[in-house]
Amino acid sequence: RDPSFAQHLQNYLSYNVFRYLENLRPGYNFGGWVDSGGSHMGLYRYAEQLWLTLFAKAPEITLFAYNQLLRQPELGKTASETFLLTDQFLGELGKPKGIASYKPYHATGEDFLQNYLGMTGLPMDMIPFFPSDKKVVLLTEQAKSDPAIADKIREQLMRGGDVVVTTGLLKAIPDQIASIAQVRCSDLKALIDDFGWNGKSARQLLIPQVHYLTNDSWEIVSAGNPLTNGVTGYPILLRCPFANGNMYVLTIPDNFADLYAFPDNALNMIRLFMSRDLDIRIEGPSKVGLFVYDNGTFIVESFLDEPVSVRVVLSGEQKIVTELTENKAYSVESNKFSITLEPHTFKVFKK
């Protein structure tokens, strides 16, 4: 879809919505459907909706609707080419996995934020329960719907796990969060563009001001206006140690899309701390997606309108990875390798 239209749907939704519905009742989501919305931007948008649905492991796809296919015959040709391309590797992909994001049933708050985070290269896995076997759990404002959420956060931290809470949740349940760390999201705002050694954004971004007790919590990523040679700054990623784990506060701009304007190094730091459950992460700009599977396969896709180079970071002692559509080997040095993606394309890898 065209994100500038009334629904403001982000590209990543085509993947994320299927995964979330599948997680609600595994095995009972029998497919996805794709219409021609957004195809006026270019047929790549139609193809993208199709392959993102397949990346999510949808067992079948419905092309909606027949009258659209008759009116725009190029849609059928694009669908055929997309299916031929994805048939080359879909059988190689395992079960999708990502950063666990707990969304209680019927919960609202910071709606669709996970789609914006997915567009910054953070693989999302939205689930309707608080997991007990994850190193990191992401909690947006949606988690306020669980009356026992503070107890679940403490239990996660006590067993040595981490929790990432957004400023939306921090503001929604301040008293419950205060039982874990003396941190609060105020009504004050700040305009920022300088992320210090993590770089600068191309424009000013409006964020909520997070207040905390010095030495009780520590800023991992900071920003100001200016921060470098300035007199104050504000946390973008804040670490709050508790028991055997850490609660991190992730500052969400008032406009979710401003996450895309975060400098590369700031995003890289956020990806590093949020990806403990994954053996793969990327380094580079926003609007590059990462899709990870449980059998060592993964996909890197560019949503950008220009070529982009990114680094893929692997854990372990991997020396070679293979790109499946080209049958090309990439050498891994110091757990990293670099790739270049043309606009609106993807590469599929197997370790």
Rank of each mutant, 00 (worst) to 15 (best):
S4A: 15
A6H: 14
A6L: 11
Q10P: 00
Y12V: 01
L13S: 02
L13D: 01
S14Y: 08
N16I: 06
E22Q: 12
L24E: 10
G27W: 12
V34G: 02
V34D: 05
H40S: 09
G42E: 13
Y46T: 03
W51V: 03
W51E: 10
P59K: 03
I61S: 06
I61H: 04
L70Y: 14
R71C: 01
G76P: 00
E81V: 03
E81T: 03
T82Y: 08
T82N: 12
T82M: 13
F83M: 14
D87R: 12
D87A: 14
E92C: 10
P96Y: 06
G98F: 06
G98A: 08
S101G: 07
G109M: 10
E110A: 09
D111Y: 13
F112N: 01
Y116M: 01
L117V: 05
G118N: 04
M124P: 09
M126Q: 12
F129M: 05
P131M: 12
K134I: 07
L138Y: 04
L139I: 00
L139C: 09
A143W: 02
S145K: 13
D146W: 01
A148Q: 14
A150V: 14
D151V: 04
R154N: 11
M158P: 00
R159W: 10
T167K: 04
L169C: 02
P174K: 06
I180G: 03
A181W: 02
V183G: 09
V183T: 14
R184Q: 14
C185H: 01
L191N: 14
D193N: 14
D194F: 09
F195G: 03
F195R: 06
Q204I: 04
L205V: 12
P208Q: 12
L213F: 08
T214S: 14
N225Q: 11
T228N: 09
T228W: 11
G233Y: 07
P235L: 07
P235I: 04
I236M: 11
L237A: 03
L238A: 08
L238N: 01
R239I: 06
G245H: 08
Y248D: 02
P253W: 02
D254M: 10
D254E: 15
D254A: 04
A261G: 00
P263C: 10
P263S: 09
D264I: 00
N265T: 07
N268R: 08
I270C: 05
L272N: 06
F273R: 04
S275N: 10
D279P: 10
D279M: 04
R281W: 08
I282V: 13
E283D: 08
Y293F: 13
G296I: 05
T297G: 03
T297L: 08
D305K: 13
E306W: 12
E306M: 04
P307Y: 14
R311L: 14
L314M: 11
K328L: 15
K328A: 10
S331W: 11
V332T: 05
S338I: 04
I339E: 06
T340P: 00
L341M: 06
E342I: 05
P343E: 11
T345P: 01
K347W: 01
